[in-house]
Design a protein around this nucleic acid. Sequence first.
RNA 1: GGCCCCGUCGUCUAGCGGUUAGGACGUCGGCCUCUCACGCCGAUAACACGAGUUCGAUUCUCGUCGGGGUCACCA
Length: 478
Amino acid sequence: MTLRMRFAPSPSGYLHIGNVRSTLFTWLWCKSQGGKFVLRVEDTDQERSSIDSVRAVLDDLKWLGLEWDEGPEVGGQFAPYFQSERKAVYREHTTQLIRERKAYRCYCTKEELDAQREALKAANPKANFVYPGTCRNRTDEPDLPFVVRFRSPTSGSTDFNDRVFGHISTPNSAQQDFVLMRTDGYPLYNLAATIDDHLMEITLVARGRDHIGNTPQQILLYEAFGWQPPEFAHLPMMLSAKGEKLSKRNGSVSVKEYRDKGFTPMGVLNYLVRFGWSSGDQEIFSREQLIELFSWDHVNKGDGKFDDKKFADVAFEQLKQPSLTSLADYAAWVKPFLALRGIENPDDALLLRAIPGVRERARTLVDAAHDLDFYFREPPELDEKARQKFLTPAAAPHLQGLRTLFESVSTWQPEPLEAALKAWVEGAGLTMKDVAQPARVALTGRSASPPLFEVMTVLGKPRSLSRLAHASEIAQGG
RNA sequence: GGCCCCGUCGUCUAGCGGUUAGGACGUCGGCCUCUCACGCCGAUAACACGAGUUCGAUUCUCGUCGGGGUCACCA
């Protein structure tokens, strides 16, 4: 049987970072096993789902490079892949269960049940409310709104073998007659997921551990339909730094945030993949390596806490190493961030020359765009503090002297430039510290930048000289 | 509270009966240096606890404690 896995997001917001990890593991396993990765949109909750969210989720997945073999946009033999378009299928199956007395109509209203729940809580705060089975044996069929409930077994247990957690057994007595279909005819998660996973021939379901409790219910449904359940692989939770469930209020959770911060897809993926999985001590992997190395037996069971510092470091490592992000890719990644600063069409040659010096100090693409900025403005934006501190009247003659000096340098490379400056500095009885900072401010507008001679080499002779001249005039004026 | 799951440095993790318990992030020192970084060197810091099993337990079993998840007409 060929491997088929799925990612089934509910489009009620953005793509959650925890779901990205589940998807990554799913994607990697499919790639390494020659399986099919199916994307199915679980939009059965009309109130929460939106088309914008669908768009956002698809965009983020594509940005991450986690492309699907079947699903929205690409189609497939099990279409449609939007659950909202599959209502007839769920209705049909639900009818079958009712006919076989494996499910029944329940006319209790939400209000009635809420009232019962509250009454019980009031009487005993620790009490466990379960649906009392009011309509379980009802035989009349009044013309009233109803939900469909599953007739759960009351004895025995439901077991399954998890790829990560091993054998998990849940007593059926812990199960209540859960709802399969609402009053409005829309199916609930457990019903829809079970039917679709079966119909779409999913063989392995990977998802967060918060779904472990749903698994017995789904298995019960498979049994009711007489189907073979798929295998399951639950992943440990990604908790916030505080050890609580990751949420909007509790840390950054959307892929978009990291994308906007200037992380690359592989930066994100490398952090996430090591969250719950490992391959010895290796920290950074290429996409190809991950596909080759990933396996379920190195997936941990313990939950983990999210660490922004570590994440940032992994993302930085990815940007810093030319072997991980090529010069051309770096340029392509950083351009949108330059555009955000108003630099729309940077000189490609200049950009390519500038990146090597910037990439080892810019932790994100946002930082990189900031660090690259001065190369593309004539004159560069001048930092006020830097001007006050270094472009002083006393520095003016030095800057003028440097301009004259460098004008005579014919080989515009770091070494000759440095040699020329050192000789000049000594001859003038100065130190590098005296002239380096004014020169830096003159060339970059800032007090921090890549090494001077590298900056000059990247800028080229004409630009360097004119910046020195311009700055010496400013310094003259105080 | 019921049910389920988990437990190695602050964090992510290696370890799969015998190790000075390793790596990375962080933190703290130092080196390098024209600035900021990068880099390099060093330090800090963990097997939750208690019983077993065993010649020997971080590793296997049980208990305790601790943590988390889940108990909707959400997914």
